Simulated assay, not measured.
Amino acid sequence: MSTRTGERGPDPRPLFDRATAQATRLVAAARPARFTDPTPCREFDVRRLISHLVGVTRRIAVVGEGGDGLAVAPFADTVADEALAVAYEDARAAALRAWRDDARLDAEVAVPWGNVPGRAALAGYVMETVTHTWDLWEALGRPGTLDPELAGFALGVARTVLPAERRGPDVPFGATVAAPERADTYGELAAWLGRSPLGEKN
């Protein structure tokens, strides 16, 4: 896939490919012994976070196929611990296949935040994947490095669709917090979505 920009906005598929590949590496690195560890996403431990990554990736795959993504559970609660990494790889592969058709980018689709063009939906899932990848990276002790371009794209999406004043019980992200001094783009993204690095208080 190549990145193409048209009057309706950029093609998010290459970034979704990269974002889910980055997530795949971290999901594969998470061992069941770490599954009860906390993450910056306060309501999720490591297992719940990975389960959510599987669920939302399955959801955007179904959206790309023209199905009802809202009917797909946002968690993979029935998947055994030792099978979660494979479940994520399978969900990622299904999503990449589902979005091959260029026509899906401009078709209206239903996602939890409303009815939007496919490209906007997929961009939103890039943001979610990148954000939760940072959550997992923090929880696992920051192994390796993360792709800064993905964070820049996700931050742009977050600032557009989740302005600081749009938070509350119906929005699954907390109020913005101050980014740590000298924060990189991931730190800025996390702060915009109400997160702080583990060990730091909001």
Score class of each variant (00 low, 15 high):
residue 2 S to I: 12
residue 4 R to A: 12
residue 8 R to C: 07
residue 11 D to T: 03
residue 12 P to F: 00
residue 14 P to T: 03
residue 16 F to K: 02
residue 23 A to I: 08
residue 27 V to C: 05
residue 28 A to C: 10
residue 29 A to G: 10
residue 29 A to M: 14
residue 31 R to E: 15
residue 32 P to G: 09
residue 37 D to V: 14
residue 38 P to W: 09
residue 39 T to G: 07
residue 41 C to Y: 03
residue 44 F to R: 02
residue 45 D to M: 03
residue 47 R to H: 05
residue 51 S to I: 06
residue 55 G to S: 07
residue 61 A to E: 04
residue 61 A to G: 11
residue 62 V to T: 13
residue 62 V to E: 12
residue 63 V to W: 02
residue 64 G to S: 12
residue 64 G to Y: 08
residue 65 E to F: 06
residue 65 E to I: 03
residue 65 E to G: 10
residue 67 G to I: 02
residue 67 G to N: 03
residue 69 G to D: 02
residue 69 G to F: 00
residue 71 A to M: 11
residue 72 V to Q: 04
residue 73 A to C: 10
residue 74 P to C: 10
residue 74 P to N: 14
residue 76 A to T: 01
residue 79 V to R: 01
residue 80 A to E: 15
residue 80 A to D: 15
residue 84 L to N: 00
residue 87 A to I: 03
residue 89 E to R: 10
residue 90 D to C: 01
residue 90 D to S: 07
residue 93 A to M: 11
residue 98 A to D: 11
residue 99 W to M: 03
residue 101 D to P: 00
residue 108 E to Y: 13
residue 108 E to D: 15
residue 110 A to S: 15
residue 112 P to E: 15
residue 112 P to W: 11
residue 112 P to D: 09
residue 112 P to C: 14
residue 118 G to I: 02
residue 119 R to P: 05
residue 120 A to T: 12
residue 123 A to S: 14
residue 124 G to H: 14
residue 125 Y to Q: 02
residue 126 V to R: 01
residue 130 V to M: 02
residue 134 W to L: 06
residue 140 L to H: 04
residue 142 R to I: 06
residue 144 G to W: 02
residue 145 T to P: 11
residue 148 P to W: 03
residue 149 E to L: 12
residue 151 A to M: 05
residue 154 A to S: 10
residue 156 G to D: 15
residue 159 R to V: 06
residue 160 T to P: 13
residue 163 P to G: 04
residue 171 V to S: 09
residue 172 P to A: 13
residue 174 G to H: 07
residue 175 A to Q: 12
residue 177 V to F: 04
residue 178 A to V: 08
residue 183 A to L: 01
residue 185 T to S: 14
residue 192 W to R: 06
residue 199 G to F: 12
